[in-house]
Design a protein around this nucleic acid. Structure first.
Length: 597
RNA sequence: GGUCCAGUAGUUCAGUUGGUUAGAACGCUAGCCUGUCACGCUAGAGGUCGACGGUUCGAGUCCGUUCUGGAUCGCCA
């Protein structure tokens, strides 16, 4: 049982006390980090959100108070009143280590069971345990710092947008299922039997309608939901900084967002973002880095080698060329000695997960060349390769031959994997860039049709509008992604604001007129009543926080995250619904063999 | 849907070729201790080795199934 406050007021956060407070009588409240009992002297490390402050109980207090101090344990919630004193022995590891508080009185506000995890940044408890007791895990200073940083980023963004005349407008959480894109989370409607809302994958349509309504500049920091498989950087519900502007083109949107990033990174990380940011067309990003979200903190760029192997005896390469495939390599320049044959075999295993069938290699060490394809290389080829990759000593060329998509995927991932293994990535080195000029469509092999690469409301480049019907594959979009250190932290586009072009777009995507009407009729209609040219962007807030805090786990920056199975280990959601609820919704469950109950 | 990794005390881990009573550190409990801050010293408690099944005289260890968590490919307009 805990004692009541009875009007007692906290006068300071303990971690904020310094030498200038010496002599003051203070009241502190917080959690017991640690008690050290030396017999007739007890030290207590008191923790609150500001940090740690050492409290001392000695024989000057009443015997009763001393006994009480002796009874406290880790994670008890206590309030103490006492005098700030210069320490006899200082602790330079503690910001408040010059002082301590000699306690006169102690209230135990709440006792605590022995916690299942240690409240300490160095605690290495299994994530399962941490998530089950998330409220304890979040007591760790490191975890608190993640969420404080998250708050600072969101808060800086709001200040920036407010100053620039953007309006924060909420859009519905219960909305219309969207046929394109990710799987929706569906919500049954009780008063409209057999009908469903979907949770928004993004406020896309609503923010565009707000532009039609004339709000001119909109932003919202809001949850979005996608029922897809999770990853270390992907959660089923995540937070988007959503932005839309009227009467703008691509450069206008990019310019204001560069200022936003400059402001946030200065405020939160004291980092100066150099603007204007690098702009890389999609085709160049793929060509040089094999990725549309390249990490440009290091080189190892891809080079096409097809012309060097025309007429080669090496069957893998000749077959690749015969089937319009691609042969590309990367030069791991200066690190050849860091990779044994065994290491290269592991790299080969790595790229196989991306569909590549093998990895050819050429090492140049101490003036000598070793290679897995030695017998297929003549002197002129070797010279050409040296020239192409500007080979110096201690270089290693890694080569993949396959369908272009496989070559891009595997080598793009490989250069990042190798940089990671070499430990040459500085997380505090923020390398931003825009990737621009995305293809408008990509071909979906399964559905046998073109699908929108970004979304169906993305405007084609002006010069490509005429190719919507004749050559959709070559249409480029007024779309841009903002990329930071290999992560896509945001993406956006100029939207279609012309209902005729919008209808042509739906047609190109294979929608019949009826389908387009049924799904997006309200949207097409809206654009018949005067829609301004508009465009915007959306950031993944969680990813931005990850990059600023330097964690590679998105769950670290979300207070109550889900597991890979989209479960919440704390609340045990999702769970079985009560029959009464199902009956009200006229929902009937299909028995499944594997019960998750 | 596929591939890979992990699961042993509250926590993190060790556990040899299958062999006696499954160990360590931290944490916890009790006692002692006036300058600790990774306090120290003494004593002690604490285990369904994720679960089920199999092989064996004998299984933490081998085999199968399954559950849980993680990484990743597909997927994520």
């Amino acid at each position: 049982m805990g004692e009541a406050l009875n009007g007692l007021k906290r006068s300071y956060y303990g971690g904020e006390l310094r030498e200038n407070h010496i002599g003051e009588t203070v009241t502190l409240m917080g959690w017991v980090q640690k008690r050290r009992n030396l017999g007739s002297l007890i030290f207590v490390d008191l923790r609150d959100k500001s940090g740690i402050c050492q409290i001392v109980f000695d024989t000057a207090v009443s015997e009763e108070a001393f006994e009480k101090a002796n009874s406290i344990r880790n994670e008890y919630v206590i309030a103490i009143t006492g005098k700030v004193t210069k320490r006899e022995s200082v602790n330079n590891n503690l910001p408040s280590g010059q002082i301590e508080v000699f306690a006169d009185s102690l209230k135990i506000l709440c006792e605590s069971d022995v916690p299942p995890i240690h409240i300490d940044d160095n605690d290495e408890a299994n994530e399962r345990t941490r998530l089950k007791y998330r409220y304890l895990d979040l007591r760790k200073p490191k975890m608190q710092n993640y969420l404080f940083t998250r708050h600072k980023i969101a808060s800086a963004a709001r200040r920036f947008f407010d100053a620039e005349g953007f309006v924060d407008i909420e859009t519905p959480m219960l909305t219309k299922p969207t046929p394109e894109g990710a799987r929706d989370y569906l919500v049954p409607s009780r008063v409209n039997l057999n009908k469903f809302y979907a949770l928004p994958q993004s406020p896309q349509l609503f923010k565009q309608l707000l532009m039609v309504s004339g709000f001119d500049r909109y932003y919202q920091i809001t949850k979005c939901f996608r029922d897809e498989d999770l990853r270390a950087d992907r959660q089923p519900e995540f937070t988007q900084i959503d932005v839309e502007m009227s009467f703008v083109d691509e450069d206008d949107v990019r310019a204001i967002n560069e200022n936003l990033l400059k402001y946030i990174f200065k405020e939160v990380a004291n980092y100066d973002v150099q603007t204007p940011l690098l702009k890389l067309p999609y085709s160049e990003a793929m060509d040089r880095f094999g990725s549309d979200k390249p990490d440009i903190r290091f080189g190892f760029e891809l080079k096409q080698m097809n012309h060097l192997f025309v007429g080669t005896e090496f069957k893998v390469f000749s077959d690749t060329l015969a089937s319009n495939g691609d042969i590309r390599g990367i030069n791991i320049n200066g690190y050849s000695d860091r990779f044994s044959r065994k290491d290269i075999t592991k790299l080969e295993e790595f790229i196989k997960s991306y569909g590549a069938k093998g990895l050819a290699w050429i090492k140049f060490t101490n003036g000598e060349m070793q290679s897995s394809i030695n017998k297929f290389l003549d002197d002129s080829q070797v010279e050409a390769i040296k020239a192409l990759f500007e080979v110096g000593d201690n270089d290693m060329i890694l080569i993949v031959a396959d369908k272009p998509a496989v070559v891009y995927d595997s080598l793009g991932a490989l250069r990042c994997e190798i940089a990671k293994q070499l430990n040459i990535l500085d997380p505090k080195d923020y390398k931003f860039l825009w990737v621009t000029d995305f293809p408008l469509f990509e071909y979906d092999e399964e559905e046998n049709r073109y699908v929108a690469k970004h979304h169906p409301f993305t405007s084609p480049k002006d010069e490509d509008v005429d190719k919507l019907e004749s050559d959709p594959g070559s249409c480029r979009a007024k779309a841009y992604d903002i990329v930071l250190n290999g992560y896509e932290i945001g993406g956006g586009s100029i939207r279609i604001h012309n209902s005729t072009v919008q209808e042509r777009m739906f047609k190109a995507l294979g929608f019949t007129e009826e389908e387009a009407r049924e799904k997006f009729g309200f949207f097409i209609d809206a654009f018949k009543y005067g829609a301004p040219p508009h465009g915007g962007i959306a950031y993944g807030l969680d990813r931005v926080v990850m990059l600023v805090t330097g964690t590679d786990n998105i769950r670290d920056v979300i207070a109550f995250p889900k597991t890979q199975d989209a479960k919440c280990l704390l609340t045990n959601a999702p769970s079985v619904a009560e029959q009464k609820q199902l009956d009200e919704l006229y929902l009937k469950l299909t028995p499944v063999e594997k019960s998750n109950a």
